[in-house]
Design a protein around this nucleic acid. Structure first.
Length: 547
RNA sequence: GGGCCCAUAGCUCAACGGUUAGAGCACCGGACUCAUAAUCCGUCGGUUCCAGGUUCGAAUCCUGGUGGGCCUACCA
């Protein structure tokens, strides 16, 4: 059974979802076969992963989709005559993709392949339906084809302007072509899409892109070609032998075909419409205009939110040796640990903004926020606990927590809840840092290391340390969706098995087991120390070893 | 050509029309040792790009400049 067989489906979210078990569908862009994981793709994937883990920590059942486009141009060119080679390359890429995701602790529910039969069938059904509805038509055009970049232009069944003499992209020479391509009636949906964007202020984020798109739609849409001349690998157009469905068109439908399951329509009914679709800036037009139009034509509900992620570049560092532009976030994660990379990607800029990866900035940020602040607080608290209480969790005798320390934790939980809904990861990590620094300040102000003279294991000290340890536990739980490894390490140091799933009740005060013996303190970021990274010297730069 | 965004301390950025425009980094100075990588405190730092306008009141709103960035669909 395929999703589209009940294509009017697509639940009304408010009526069918209880707060207890929200089934939110989160997607990231499908990866092109053979493209490496970049900071841009990792950024979106880490963000989606963090949101997904947060949903789970609330007790919900989200579904996180990643995918691979098997029908990319590179495979068409190289392995046109060899199906087996294409499949084996796709499989190899999938394994590599999985490995890289693992390195960053990104765990989607599914890595979808567009070579799958279910995708082929869904796309074919979808295409057929749009032909039946007369939203796809075929029409003879006299177009132009760029001999350099192989892009066809001037494909307009009702041309309104003079055809250009040079390729607008590369200034290459143009040659005339005559085809009978299939058009999708994008123009027909112009007003509907515009209205949808205007009426749903969250449909496209960030906001500035919404304004830009509104203006572009207002200036008029043209019908768009959804076919390509024959290649070996692509999904054939029903009833045609020499044309296939354009890759972008087919790829978009992947978000739906990935929800097909063998038994029935249930997964599609549960998870569509998507809650968040993260897309790259270069495909905004396709995702925010063409995709909604396709869904409208196919009588499928529109996704709730299209979130356009920022572009990242690896760039020259004026004061320090720069990295090769091809440096991958996975290489960085291998050396410095996954959470360092996750932290930097999520915190460096507000989600959706463009950014530059500079190794000195990265290093400074981790050093300050994670090692100095977070690990510093953890080590100080734990080593004092070792000294004063012989490494056991002190008994506060029913005391329900230092009000100031407690309110810091409560405030953090509240801030995270408020900011996660709008994907403001950098703000969440800022708030986290603020809480950590406030706790450090309290420690500094109270100077508990001077207390032993006044009575080392007295009730005031036990109350204070219990509160501190308990707030560390809350910090560890709260940071879990964003920095899973660090969270697990912190929990281990607090004598809690990190295996246990995060849950909403983790917010509740007073869960540490009094009297429990804690393991000896160990650093939260050992990778950083072992990397012995020196931003001043390129000879000592571990990233240089392979370049 | 059309459209969008940005301009605030040396750097990176905050500030919902309303106290004296704030943080972090860097610099400089002084302490300290509970801390796996030391740490703590303090000083210094501003014509909010320019010119007008609205207002009791403008970094914030409006108009016009100047400078910078980005987008402008049928490759996947």
């Amino acid at each position: 059974m395929l999703p589209l067989e009940k294509s009017n489906a697509g639940k009304s979210r408010s009526s069918q979802l209880s707060d207890q078990d929200q089934k939110r569908y989160i997607t990231i862009p499908f990866s092109n076969l053979d493209s490496p994981i970049t900071f841009t793709t990792a950024h979106a994937a880490v963000a989606a992963d963090s949101y997904y883990r947060h949903q789970k920590s609330l007790g919900h059942s989200p579904h996180y989709l990643a995918g691979i486009k098997d029908h990319s141009r590179s495979t068409q060119q190289i392995s046109r005559s060899d199906v087996d080679e294409m499949f084996s390359r796709g499989d190899a890429y999938r394994n590599q993709f999985q490995k890289q995701m693992d390195l960053l602790q990104i765990h989607p529910d599914k890595i979808f392949r567009t070579k799958s039969e279910v995708h082929k069938k869904t796309v074919t059904d979808f295409f057929r339906k749009l032909i039946t509805n007369n939203d796809i038509y075929t029409c003879r055009v006299d177009g132009l084809h760029c001999t350099r970049c192989h892009i066809a232009i001037s494909h307009d069944p009702h041309p309104t302007s003079v055809p250009p003499s040079q390729c607008p992209d590369c200034q290459g020479e143009l040659e005339p072509i005559h085809e009978d391509p299939y058009f999708f009636r994008l123009k027909k949906f112009e007003k509907l899409i515009l209205r949808h964007i205007q009426n749903h202020s969250d449909f496209i984020k960030p906001q500035f892109l919404k304004i830009e798109l509104e203006n572009r739609i207002k200036s008029g849409l043209k019908d768009v070609i959804v076919s390509r001349p024959t290649f070996e690998y692509g999904i054939p157009i029903p009833g045609e032998t020499d044309q296939i469905i354009a890759g972008w068109f087919e790829g978009l439908i992947g978000y739906i075909s990935a929800l097909a399951d063998s038994e029935n329509n249930q997964r599609f009914l549960d998870y569509w419409p998507a809650h968040i679709q993260m897309v790259q800036s270069e495909t905004v037009w396709m995702h925010a205009v063409a995709w909604p139009a396709m869904l409208l034509a196919g009588e499928v509900s529109l996704p709730e939110r299209i979130f356009v992620t920022g572009d990242w570049n690896v760039d020259i560092d004026s004061d320090h040796p720069s990295l090769p532009a091809s440096t991958s976030p996975c290489e960085i994660a291998e050396i410095f640990g996954s959470d360092s990379v996750r932290y930097f990607l999520l915190s460096h800029v507000p989600f959706g903004m463009n950014a530059v990866f500079q190794v000195s900035e990265f290093h400074k940020s981790i050093q300050r926020n994670l090692i100095h602040d977070l690990d510093g607080l953890t080590q100080r608290t734990l080593s004092l606990t070792q000294k004063v209480f012989h490494g056991t969790i002190p008994d506060p005798e029913g005391y329900d927590g230092d009000p100031e320390i407690r309110s810091l934790g409560e405030q953090l939980c509240k801030d995270i809840r408020e900011n996660i809904a709008t994907l403001q990861f950098s703000r969440i990590l800022d708030e986290f840092g603020h809480t950590v620094r406030s706790l450090r300040y309290l420690l500094e102000e109270n100077k508990p290391w001077t207390w032993p003279q006044k009575g080392p294991e007295g009730l005031p000290a036990r109350k204070f340390f219990y509160s501190l340890l308990e707030s560390l536990r809350i910090l560890a739980h709260q940071i879990g969706p964003f920095l899973p490894t660090t969270s697990a390490r912190m929990l281990t140091l607090l004598g809690i098995s990190p295996e246990s799933e995060l849950s909403p009740s983790d917010e509740k005060w007073g869960q540490l087991e009094v009297g429990k013996t804690l393991p000896p303190p160990s650093p939260l970021f050992p990778e950083f120390e072992s990397a012995k990274f020196d931003t001043q010297s390129s000879s000592n730069n571990p990233l240089r070893k392979s370049s």
